[in-house]
Structure formats: structure tokens, C-alpha cells
């Protein structure tokens, strides 16, 4: 009876917020670690570390993100890897070949240190989950891509495209697989889903004449490539340069 009475009485008492307090708690290194949680995480951490540390290849040189003219050794290596590893996948799906590759310079997140190359190296180079996409562009649309590269003044990695700019940044030579770009020909351009969706202001991928999502992460491209080579040999060349 009392129980019921108290209950109804409580219901009639309307509650109000009388005070609100705010605190931001820093999760800093002065806090103690919960031993049970730490022990639970440990086997997962060790498994990952072991796998990431396993050696895939070797490099006698240290490669920084250093750019000479408009290309870098790492950028060239990554763009060439996207070409060589993605092309068989694309061909299997469509029966066609990739004509060129375009990535973005900002997408290379680290250098490669002299010594062993591991999966960890691939995670450092490419921490993002971006995947390879292939976009069909007409020669006319490729011109927009080339115009973008000529005014961006960045060493965006390319493969199978040659672009030579004069001292005023005008295009003096542009070729795909060594051939002149024809306005009405369809070219299959491999890039990342991030750039396809307008990342780094690359707005020239849409509209297009076709699109394929390869479900192949760029990081996995690198891991597969590292697995295939013994020693990394990456070089700066004349694929994208300015003649001063």
C-alpha cells in the first residue's frame, strides 16, 4: 500500500534540470591502465605486429618523398604498381586494358627506409582504404586531366602517361603509352575512388564513358607488388617533367 502511494506521489513530482556541469576528461598517460582490458588486447596486437613485420622485399636505398621536376621515385613506383597489379584484374572483368594511371601526390604518406620492406611499409605509404577504380574517358576529357596536371604544379604520380611542360607550364608533349592522344578514342584511366569522387579537385572524372570499381585496395596493390620483387628499384624519370 505504502509502496503504491509513494509511487503515485513520485509521479506527480515533476523533475527539473537544476544544474548542468561539463568536464572534458583527457585520456592522458597519467591515467592507470586497466590490466584486464590490456591483457585482452595483447594477443590481437601481437598477431598484427608479427604479420606487419614479416619481410616482403628489400631496399638498399632510402626513398624520401623527394620530388625532382614533376616526378618522384616512390610516386613512379606506386603508379607503376597500380598499373601492373590492377591491369590483370581489369582485363578479367572487362576484357580491356588499362591505358594509364593517375594518383595524387598527397596520397603518398611516407617515405621508404633502407632495409627490409614489410607490410608495415605498405600501411605507412598507404594508410587509407582507397581502392582502384578504372574510368573510361574520351581523349577530349583526357585533355582536362592534362590541363589539371599542367596547372597543379604537383608531382601527381602517373604511369603510361608522358607529359612534358614548357617553361610557362604549357603542354609541349602529351602521350599515352607512347602514342598521341586522339580526341574520340576511349582511354581507361586507373585511379583511386577518392580521386574519382573529386578528391584533390580532380573534377574531370565525371561525367565519363564508363566506370569499374575493382574492389582492390591500393595498399594491397603495394603488398602484392612487394611480394613479387626481391629488391626495390624505384627511379625518377622523364614521364612528367618541365623543360626549363
Amino acid at each position: 500500500m505504502l509502496y503504491f502511494f509513494v509511487f503515485t506521489n513520485c509521479k506527480q513530482q515533476k523533475l527539473h534540470i537544476s544544474k548542468v556541469e561539463n568536464t572534458v576528461l583527457k585520456v592522458s598517460d597519467t591515467l592507470s591502465v586497466n590490466a584486464e582490458i590490456e591483457a585482452y588486447i595483447k594477443p590481437f596486437r601481437l598477431h598484427i605486429k608479427k604479420d606487419l613485420d614479416s619481410v616482403l622485399a628489400y631496399t638498399p636505398n632510402t626513398y624520401s618523398k623527394k620530388v625532382d621536376n614533376f616526378n618522384s621515385a616512390i610516386g613512379n613506383f606506386i603508379a607503376d604498381a597500380v598499373y601492373s597489379e590492377s591491369n590483370p584484374v581489369f582485363k578479367r572483368i572487362t576484357g580491356k586494358n588499362i591505358d594509364m594511371v593517375l594518383l595524387n601526390h598527397g596520397g603518398i604518406r611516407a617515405g621508404i627506409n633502407k632495409g627490409n620492406i614489410s607490410k608495415q611499409t605498405a600501411f605507412e605509404l598507404m594508410p587509407f582504404e582507397n581502392s582502384v577504380v578504372v574510368v573510361a574517358l574520351k581523349g577530349k576529357q583526357i585533355n582536362n586531366l592534362i590541363k589539371y596536371l599542367s596547372i597543379s604544379k604537383k608531382a601527381h604520380p602517373v604511369s603510361k602517361l608522358q607529359l612534358i611542360l614548357d617553361k610557362d607550364f604549357n603542354v609541349s608533349k602529351a602521350a599515352i603509352q607512347g602514342k598521341v592522344i586522339k580526341p574520340n578514342q576511349t582511354y581507361y584511366v586507373a585511379t583511386s575512388d577518392y580521386l574519382y569522387n573529386g578528391g584533390d579537385n580532380m573534377t574531370f572524372f565525371k561525367p565519363n564513358a564508363g566506370f569499374n570499381y575493382l574492389n582492390y585496395k591500393i595498399r594491397n596493390v603495394l603488398i602484392d607488388k612487394f611480394n613479387k620483387i626481391d629488391t626495390l628499384k624505384a627511379v625518377i624519370d622523364n614521364r612528367f617533367i618541365q623543360i626549363k
Binding site: Q13, K14, L15, H16, I17, S18, K19, V20, E21, N22, T23, V24, L25, K26, V27
Partner: peptide, 25 residues
Amino acid sequence: ENLGRIDFHFSNNTAISGNGTSLIV
């Protein structure tokens, strides 16, 4: 990096209740 914490004090005393939410930091 952080854990947010907001404490709401509820009272049944209308005399001290504010107008909606009043934040005292």
C-alpha cells in the same frame, strides 16, 4: 583522446529549477 562528461542534476524542487537547460561549467 578525450572522454566527454556532462552531469545533469535533476531536482523535484521547482524553486531551483532553471528555464530549460542552464549550463554551469
